[in-house]
Computed example of a mutant assay.
Amino acid sequence: MKDIIQIISNLEDMRFIKPASMEQIIEAEKELGVSFADDYTKYVEKYGVISARGIELTGVTTHERLSVVSVTKKERNMNSNIPANMYVIENIAIDGIIALQDETGKVYTITPNGTPKLSYNSLSEYVEKSNF
């Protein structure tokens, strides 16, 4: 599996806000009742949250629109089919589709009121293959 940090660092027009501390990451996991996948933890510890051409991942940040905690809570309230062990990694903003990740690292997509569909085996694969 390719390294998530290397993949992100090669994204066109990549911007990030502020790396998250391990304490902030643990607090976000507790708030959501989840364990982040290793690659997601590695990503937020390095970048906090990113935006690049074609992709805008949630992260551990105080910016509500990009906060994994805020976005996941909002999406859970709108779609009861989102499993409790998953968190939102991106609001794709096309037909209400969102991307979710579970603690094993697998990435799923879900439509409004739909159920999760396995789409990628890791965050690295998601970022690499879904970047337009």
Rank of each mutant, 00 (worst) to 15 (best):
S35G: 01
N113F: 02
K18S: 04
T109V: 10
E64A: 13
D95R: 07
I26M: 03
Y126S: 07
P83Q: 14
L11D: 11
E31N: 13
E31K: 15
Y43W: 10
N121T: 13
R76E: 07
E23H: 10
M14Q: 15
I4L: 09
V88A: 06
Y108S: 14
K74G: 05
Q24S: 10
M78V: 01
V34L: 00
N10S: 15
E12H: 08
I17N: 03
K106C: 14
I4Q: 13
G48L: 06
K74S: 14
E128V: 02
D3I: 02
A37R: 00
N113H: 12
G59P: 11
M1P: 11
I98W: 00
V68D: 10
D38A: 01
P83C: 09
S122G: 12
G59W: 10
T104E: 09
E75H: 07
I82G: 10
P19A: 12
V34M: 00
I82T: 11
T115I: 14
M22T: 13
T58Y: 00
M86I: 05
E56H: 06
I4W: 09
E12L: 09
Q24V: 01
I4D: 13
S21M: 02
V69R: 04
V34R: 00
F36E: 02
I50M: 11
V71D: 03
Q24H: 07
I94E: 12
Y120I: 10
E45N: 15
A93Y: 07
S130L: 06
R65K: 14
S80R: 12
T61N: 09
G114Y: 02
S122Y: 11
R53K: 12
I17P: 00
P112N: 08
T61Y: 08
N81V: 02
A93D: 07
N131H: 12
A84L: 02
E128I: 01
E29T: 09
Q101K: 11
M86Q: 13
V60Y: 00
N77T: 00
I7E: 15
E56M: 06
K106E: 15
E64D: 11
S70P: 01
I8Q: 07
M22K: 15
